[in-house]
Amino acid sequence: MSNLNLLSRWVRWTVGASLAMAGMANAADYPTRPITLVVPFAAGGISDNQSRLIARKLSDALGQPVVVENRPGASGMVGAEYVARAPADGYTLFYGTHGTQAANLALYRNARVDPSRELRGVHSLFRQSAILMTNATSPYRSVADVVKAAKEAPGKLNFASAGQGTQTHLAAARFEQAAGIKLTHVPYKGQSPAMADLLGGSVDMMFDYPETALPQMRAGKLRALAVSAGKRLEVMPDVPTMAESGYPGAALEGWSGIFVPAKTPDDVVARLSSELDKATNAPDVTASMARIGSFPMGLADRKFQAFVESEVPRWRKIVQDSGAQPE
């Protein structure tokens, strides 16, 4: 072998070793500067509120500011692409959900990012269900009342949702399938206008999250008929589950978690995962989340990523069965 070849090999080995050692040192010191947590939805919703709660906990644990940055658009795909293209160094995190990581893959034909593969799961956050609600002046006082009316006049009853393919839409579609009824879908661009029309009596019913529904229920403006969770919620113990109402096939829970670019170093992910595990199980966090019907999932690192990948085909079928049309 020529001296030139030997020199070339030595240079490559030296550079590679130096880069590896630098990476180890950086991971060991991590973090040394502020971290950005990208939320792919508008400020003020359940995702934003959860993220800010977790960001405060992470900031205290890591000794660096964790800044929440809202990047809404395309049902979360804008934020997902932004983080997937960010440096894989642990300084750009992503708040992902069953929607961004799984359901969206069935809703967008020409998506420029596959979040289930280009983003790596760090740690799960919370699972949450939706509540089937009617206006308090509605004649429907139970799931049985809704099913009876829907079978007598297929398509006459309608339901609002925050948009095609959202959990508020898919939960209603699951209910239709489980009960063998036909409802008319009225999609809105977000939860707020949908809720406004439910309160105004323009639509018959809606699935929504406890966080936004509870204040209206306590004010006597909405009536809860059932929850799509596997068990009753502590914050509304008198409201039955869909299974208790006779339709176990209508159960549907969403979930959330923290993600990073796929090539983020293992030890950085491990550090983040460890702190997120503590944060999601902190008594003040679990109590705060329980008040809005959300509960920690407890999946870390590779187990969480495996769970996310297993959810992709499940949510694809849920979307397809709902009749939602890909964009």
Rank of each mutant, 00 (worst) to 15 (best):
T168W: 02
A250M: 07
H98S: 09
L199H: 01
A27K: 09
T36S: 09
N281Y: 07
G298L: 08
V113K: 02
A74Q: 10
V285G: 12
P296V: 00
G73R: 02
G190I: 12
A194T: 10
A194I: 15
K303W: 07
A106L: 04
E211M: 14
L199E: 00
V312T: 07
I181P: 03
A250V: 12
S18H: 05
T241S: 11
K151I: 09
S8V: 08
T32K: 15
A270M: 12
L93A: 01
M77V: 10
E275Y: 09
N110Y: 14
Y140L: 04
T184R: 03
V268K: 13
Y140M: 06
S75C: 02
I258Y: 00
K57Y: 03
L6G: 07
V269D: 08
W315I: 06
Q320W: 10
L6H: 06
P193G: 04
A103H: 05
T184L: 04
P296K: 00
A226D: 00
V78W: 03
V312Y: 05
T280L: 03
T184G: 03
E253N: 09
P296Y: 04
P115L: 04
M195I: 08
S274C: 12
P40M: 02
P237N: 13
R71F: 00
I258K: 01
A20W: 05
L105A: 01
R109Q: 14
L4M: 07
T286N: 14
S47T: 00
L53T: 11
T97R: 03
N135Y: 02
W13G: 15
A149P: 06
V147D: 03
K278F: 03
V143P: 14
P261D: 11
F307W: 15
T166S: 11
A150F: 07
R117K: 07
R314S: 13
A150H: 08
M206P: 12
T212D: 06
K57E: 00
G63E: 09
E327M: 12
H185A: 00
P237G: 14
K317N: 10
A251G: 09
E69N: 09
P283K: 14
Q167T: 01
P326E: 15
L119Q: 14
V203N: 09
P210K: 13
L125T: 13
V143A: 13
W255C: 05
T280P: 08
G45Q: 11
A287R: 11
L170Q: 07
